[in-house]
C-alpha cells in the first residue's frame, strides 16, 4: 500500500474521531442543560479524543500530500540520460550511403 493511501486512510480516521468528539461535546452540553448544571469542565475523554484525532489528521494529511520534488536543476539533470540532454537534431544526416545499400 502506498504512502498516499495510508495517509488518506489516516486522515479519514482522524476526521471521524474529530467528528465523534464534536458530537460528544454537543451531547454532553445538551445533557448538562437538560439537568440544569453549569458546564465548568468537559470530560477528559472528549478532550483526549479531540487531541488524538488532531495528531492522527496531521500525520495523515502530511503523508497524503505526496512527495516534494528537489528544486535544484542538477538533481533534475542527474535523472536524465546523456542522449536526452545532448541531442543535436541539426547534425542528423539523412543523405548518406545507406541510400545505395537499400537497392540490394
Amino acid at each position: 500500500m502506498s504512502t498516499v493511501k495510508v495517509g488518506k486512510s489516516l486522515g479519514w480516521i482522524g476526521f471521524l474521531l474529530l467528528f465523534h468528539s464534536a458530537y460528544s461535546t454537543y451531547e454532553h452540553l445538551s445533557y448538562l442543560k437538560a439537568v440544569d448544571k453549569i458546564p465548568n469542565y468537559m470530560p477528559i475523554e472528549i478532550t483526549v479524543e479531540c487531541l488524538v484525532s488532531v495528531s492522527i489528521c496531521t500525520i495523515g494529511i502530511i503523508l497524503a500530500a505526496g512527495p516534494l520534488k528537489p528544486i535544484l536543476i542538477k538533481h533534475e539533470l542527474a535523472k536524465k540520460t546523456i542522449d536526452e540532454i545532448d541531442t543535436h537534431p541539426s547534425f542528423n544526416t539523412f543523405n548518406h550511403r545507406g541510400r545505395l545499400m537499400k537497392c540490394f
Binding site: 482522524g14 476526521f15 474529530l18 468528539s21 464534536a22 461535546t25 472528549i46 479531540c50 487531541l51 484525532s53 488532531v54 489528521c57 496531521t58 494529511i61 502530511i62 500530500a65 505526496g66 516534494l68 520534488k69 528537489p70 528544486i71 535544484l72 536543476i73 533534475e76
Partner: peptide
C-alpha cells in the same frame, strides 16, 4: 532551480497548511 518543482512544493505545503487550519480550527472550537 526548476520553477515547476518550486511551484509544486509550495502547492504541497499550502495544501497541508490549509487542511491543518481547518482541522485544528475545528478542534479549538470543540
Amino acid at each position: 532551480y526548476v520553477p515547476e518543482n518550486i511551484a509544486h512544493n509550495v502547492k504541497t505545503i499550502t495544501f497541508i497548511r490549509s487542511s491543518m487550519s481547518a482541522i485544528t480550527g475545528s478542534a479549538a472550537g470543540i
